[in-house]
Design a binder for these strands. Structure first.
Length: 572
RNA sequence: CGGGGCGUGGCGCAACGGUGGCGCACGUGCUUUGGGAGCACGAGGUUGUGGGUCCGAAUCCCACCGCCCCGACCA
């Protein structure tokens, strides 16, 4: 591709809205353009990268027996009503009516369609197991997009679905995907950490997320450097040791003016925060009022809380009036005297005697409160966040917390969707059984962005060879001084073009100064820069620069041609 | 949805009550070709939209729209 003809432009200045390196560089180098909040076009360069990422995924999924297909973006709402998700999912699903006034949705994912196909096609156990996948656009009307391509509303995702006779079969496919993902991210140049994760809206019994560590990541990971333990904080068990037994002391109300925070309370009373209890008020989507109690030195993990109370439709913070109506007082709250509220007590609180808790009246707390004696719990569960330095649940060593971006996930769905839609097969035993499903996703654009996050320097992008839009970037310098420059450059370009689309290279044939060409070449980030100039010709051929290292050498035209034609791994 | 910020040419910015400029990019010509070249000429804006205040609004006020950041939310 000749740069004089490529649909792109580079920007000298950073776009004001781009903060993450990947966002900044992909915009500046002309790979993507934004159309609206969380909606992007892929320009030819970006599209080529995306296609290369797609090909890596395709190869690895084919290698575990995946069959590629394609499912629609627009679905009849009735299909989603059958699984209950039409009502369960909120405004993030885009809904509209077609001309016949039928309710339609834009696909957020494709479990329903898969299960619908299964009930249509699968009759016998002999047709199982199998894995199908596709690359398809999803639309999720996220409340907030962010970070360039990291979190968008419209995106292409590879999603695969395993279909098995039983749990044992699902287990096999689940781990086959786990291994395939490991290979995919390795080939993409993405250091990925598989972590145990929450099953979220997908439902299911087991899930892993493949995480790319990045400060902009929206998930917090609990990692143990000693033993390799890795989990999303949403599922990492809290391990804080319970204090030793103590005699239960009598409750005593104390005046604690302006002590509306745990820190203020602890310093006012001169006690450690671990001797206090914190009340957290939320309302579940089903209307239940929940008061969650954790120790003052901990925070509530909302995902754990949602799971503990099985809150359909999630939770939202409670309003002050709602808290008062239940006999409690924000800032001085506790379950003591609470009414019409589901009391959820963190396991650690249940084991910590004589805690300071709110008196449910302004300016007062109560010393020596104890679960069971002074208030009752509807539920005792681990609902608190793991903290940096807490004991690893596996080996006991200190854990660290890191932010991560989810670049892939795998879910054991089980029979949730196939049961709802009646996707069954006739088993060897002559009985009907629901098909057992797994679902596995990788977002293409997010992966492209993460590759840039992992592979760039101050000058621009540094594509790993596996995903670079073109293997090399050819620059001709000083053509006016020596006609052989153009001649040789054209010869190299033609040799690459003749070797097929995958070998095609970028050729900067623009009438620009050397500085512009070199700067753009570095910004665009092809693995190899090939410079033809009077100087290079005088020293024997073509100057070859490796983008990643900056290492330069001069190689013969013949040698470089071997690379361009795919007969040598590198031109260096 | 809460908090904050920003909307001025393709990009980055200035002008902050008195007829909208600058840099880069863009077009033409000449010069220039190993690190974002030089000179000359030129094109490009109903200052996000609507209302209001004022003799006069890019500028002040209100509403709306859009975008970004933090939070809420989130396979």
């Amino acid at each position: 591709m000749r740069l004089s003809n490529l649909f792109f432009t580079t920007l000298r200045d950073d776009p004001a809205d781009a903060e993450m390196p990947s966002h900044r560089l992909l915009l500046r180098a002309g790979y993507v353009r934004q159309l609206g909040a969380g909606i992007y076009s892929l320009l030819p360069l970006g599209f080529r990268v995306s296609k290369r990422v797609e090909q890596v995924i395709r190869e690895e999924l084919n290698a575990i027996g995946g069959q590629e297909m394609e499912m629609p973006v627009v679905h009849p709402a009735d299909l989603w009503r059958e699984t209950g998700r039409y009502d369960a999912i909120g405004p993030e699903m885009a809904r509209f009516k077609d001309r016949g006034d039928r309710d339609m949705v834009l696909a957020m994912t494709h479990e329903e369609v898969v299960a619908d196909l299964l009930r249509d096609i699968v009759r016998s156990y002999r047709q199982l197991p199998m894995v199908i996948y596709h690359f398809q656009t999803k639309f999720r009307d996220e409340p907030r997009s962010r970070g360039g391509l990291i979190r968008v509303r419209e995106f292409v995702m590879k999603d695969s679905y395993s279909c098995d006779r039983d749990e044992a079969g699902l287990d096999v496919n689940y781990w086959a995907h786990h291994r395939a993902y490991t290979r995919i991210f390795e080939r993409l140049g993405l250091p990925a950490i598989p972590v145990s994760s929450d099953v979220g809206m997908m439902g299911g019994s087991l899930a892993h997320e493949f995480m790319f560590l990045n400060p902009a990541g929206e998930d917090v990971l609990v990692l143990c450097e000693a033993c390799g333990y890795a989990a999303n904080r949403q599922v990492a068990p809290s391990t804080t040791a319970a204090p030793g037994p103590e005699d239960l002391l009598p409750m005593e109300e104390v005046h604690t003016p302006d002590a509306t925070t745990i820190d203020a309370l602890a310093s006012f009373l001169g006690v450690p925060t671990s001797r206090t209890a914190k009340a957290f008020f939320v309302v579940a989507g089903d209307g239940r009022f929940i008061v969650a109690i954790v120790r003052g030195d901990h925070d509530v993990n909302e995902t754990k809380l949602v799971n503990a109370v099985q809150a359909k439709g999630g939770i939202r913070p409670a309003q002050v009036e709602e808290i008062l109506a239940r006999g409690m007082q924000a800032g001085y709250g506790s379950p003591i005297g609470a009414r019409d509220a589901v009391v959820v007590v963190d396991s650690l609180v249940a084991q910590s005697p004589n805690l300071v808790a709110g008196a449910n009246k302004p300016g007062y707390h109560i010393l020596n409160t104890n679960l069971g004696r002074d208030y009752q719990a509807d539920l005792v569960a681990d609902i608190s966040n793991v903290r940096e330095g807490d004991a690893c649940p596996k080996c006991g060593g200190p854990v660290i917390l890191r932010n991560g971006i989810e670049i892939g996930n795998i879910f054991k769905l089980g029979t949730k969707y196939t049961k709802a839609l009646g996707a069954e097969y006739l088993g060897e035993d002559g009985e009907r059984h629901p098909i057992v499903m797994g679902s596995y996703g990788i977002g293409l654009g997010r992966n492209v962005a993460c590759i840039v996050e992992a592979h760039h320097d101050e000058k621009g992008i540094v594509w790993p060879a596996e995903v670079a839009p073109y293997p090399a970037h050819l620059v001709a310098i000083g053509a006016n001084k020596d006609p052989r420059v153009t001649e040789v450059a054209e010869q190299l370009y033609a040799a690459a073009a003749a070797a097929g689309d995958a070998r095609q290279i970028l050729f900067d044939d623009r009438d620009d100064s050397p500085g512009v060409k070199f700067t753009d070449a570095e910004l665009l980030g092809m693995p190899w820069l090939l410079t033809v100039s009077p100087r290079s010709l005088a020293s024997g051929g073509v100057e070859v620069t490796e983008r990643a290292t900056g290492a330069r050498s001069v190689r013969s035209i013949e040698h470089v041609t071997e690379f361009l034609e795919g007969r040598a791994a590198t031109p260096a």
